[in-house]
Nucleic acid binder design. Sequence first.
DNA 1: AGCGGAGTTATCATATGTGATAACAAGATT
DNA 2: AATCTTGTTATCACATATGATAACTCCGCT
Lengths: 92, 92
Amino acid sequence: MSLQKLKQRALTNPDVKAEYEKLESEFNLIDQLLSMRTKAGLTQEQVAERMQTQKSNISRLEKGNANPSWSTLLKYAHACGFELSLKPQKIV
Amino acid sequence: MSLQKLKQRALTNPDVKAEYEKLESEFNLIDQLLSMRTKAGLTQEQVAERMQTQKSNISRLEKGNANPSWSTLLKYAHACGFELSLKPQKIV
DNA sequence: AGCGGAGTTATCATATGTGATAACAAGATT
DNA sequence: AATCTTGTTATCACATATGATAACTCCGCT
């Protein structure tokens, strides 16, 4: 069985699928956060200062299981010099 | 003094400005949430079902002082048939 | 007038995000 | 080797988001 087949089969399990999508979107979110920071050329500590918090909290945001609130996302984005809104894409 | 002038002057106060921007982005967020739901043609109750929660919680999301977590935003978007990512816009 | 659908508000218990501190790891620099 | 920078991890206390229930308003309909 190919890897693709295996993945596809696994994803027919609703629970697995949910977890997968959760991970995927989390990855995307983290990816987008990091992208903002690197584009701004800032360190975690610098972002932390601008957000009036600690660098460890920024690491937590970017590293593990991030489920930040909207206001935290806003603060982070602003610290990196970005305005923020949602980008909803219709699922086909 | 014109209204514009007054607004402009008020916004030179950092605290006022922060509050203003907070309100503005909150409005935008709520606006975007509502937009998704109406585009999907769903009632709050239908969205609530799909999110496995109560309609009152959806109302709270759309109505007052919303500061939802990313996972809540994802659930809401999915319930409305949307995928979700951030849209950062560089501040000039 | 009465009814049903849609949305709002208040409230409580619980889960979880966030702030803060400290200690550690890995690389670069001197 | 010693130091500094950057990022990571663990932990605790506290703030706040979320789930759930109930009662309410408003509006269109019969």
